[in-house]
Amino acid sequence: MVNVQEQKVLLEVQNLKQYFSVKREKLLQPKLSVKAVDDISFTLCEGETLSIVGESGCGKSTTGRAILRLDEPTAGKVVYNGKNILDLSKKDLRTLRGELQVIFQDPFASLNPRQTIQQILSEAMSIQNSVQKELRKDRMRELMHLVGLPEEALSRHPHEFSGGQRQRIGIARALAVNPKLIICDEAVSALDVSIQAQILNLLKRLQRQLNLTFLFISHDLSVVRHISDRVMVMYLGKVVEIAPKHALFNQPTHPYTRALLSSIPVPNPKVQKERILLSGDVPSPINPPSGCRFHTRCPFATELCSSKEPETVEVQNGHHVACHYANDFFSA
Rank of each mutant, 00 (worst) to 15 (best):
residue 32 L to H: 12
residue 19 Y to L: 05
residue 65 R to T: 02
residue 215 L to N: 02
residue 161 F to S: 01
residue 1 M to W: 09
residue 213 T to L: 09
residue 291 G to M: 07
residue 26 K to V: 02
residue 194 S to A: 13
residue 307 S to T: 13
residue 281 D to Q: 15
residue 114 R to D: 03
residue 108 F to D: 00
residue 214 F to C: 05
residue 23 K to M: 03
residue 179 P to H: 10
residue 251 Q to T: 15
residue 49 T to H: 07
residue 205 R to W: 12
residue 224 V to Q: 05
residue 12 E to V: 01
residue 286 I to K: 10
residue 236 L to D: 00
residue 307 S to G: 07
residue 332 A to P: 11
residue 147 V to K: 05
residue 30 P to A: 11
residue 49 T to R: 01
residue 200 L to F: 04
residue 171 I to H: 00
residue 143 L to C: 10
residue 68 L to N: 05
residue 63 T to D: 06
residue 290 S to D: 13
residue 294 F to T: 05
residue 64 G to V: 07
residue 255 P to L: 12
residue 155 S to M: 10
residue 110 S to R: 04
residue 262 S to T: 13
residue 117 I to S: 01
residue 72 E to F: 04
residue 227 I to S: 06
residue 252 P to T: 14
residue 58 C to N: 06
residue 195 I to H: 08
residue 283 P to R: 09
residue 118 Q to V: 01
residue 52 I to N: 03
residue 310 P to C: 14
residue 324 H to A: 03
residue 204 K to T: 10
residue 277 L to Q: 12
residue 92 D to W: 09
residue 308 K to A: 13
residue 70 L to I: 15
residue 96 L to D: 05
residue 32 L to Q: 13
residue 124 A to G: 04
residue 313 V to S: 13
residue 56 S to T: 14
residue 330 F to A: 15
residue 279 S to V: 11
residue 93 L to Y: 13
residue 170 G to R: 07
residue 270 K to W: 09
residue 277 L to Y: 14
residue 148 G to H: 09
residue 66 A to M: 10
residue 132 Q to C: 08
residue 238 K to R: 14
residue 288 P to M: 04
residue 217 I to P: 03
residue 41 S to V: 00
residue 322 A to V: 02
residue 113 P to H: 07
residue 260 L to I: 06
residue 1 M to T: 11
residue 223 V to F: 05
residue 298 C to W: 04
residue 201 N to Q: 12
residue 30 P to L: 09
residue 153 A to F: 07
residue 32 L to N: 14
residue 144 M to W: 02
residue 171 I to Q: 07
residue 190 A to W: 03
residue 228 S to L: 11
residue 49 T to K: 08
residue 25 E to H: 12
residue 65 R to H: 12
residue 331 S to L: 13
residue 321 V to K: 01
residue 109 A to W: 00
residue 171 I to F: 06
residue 244 P to S: 10
residue 36 A to V: 06
residue 183 I to N: 01
residue 263 S to Y: 00
residue 240 V to E: 07
residue 98 G to T: 06
residue 283 P to A: 11
residue 35 K to V: 06
residue 232 M to V: 10
residue 93 L to N: 08
residue 94 R to S: 15
residue 319 H to Q: 13
residue 220 D to W: 10
residue 142 E to L: 09
residue 104 F to Q: 01
residue 318 G to R: 06
residue 59 G to H: 05
residue 219 H to V: 07
residue 61 S to F: 00
residue 10 L to F: 05
residue 128 Q to K: 15
residue 129 N to S: 15
residue 132 Q to N: 08
residue 315 V to C: 07
residue 269 P to M: 07
residue 18 Q to I: 08
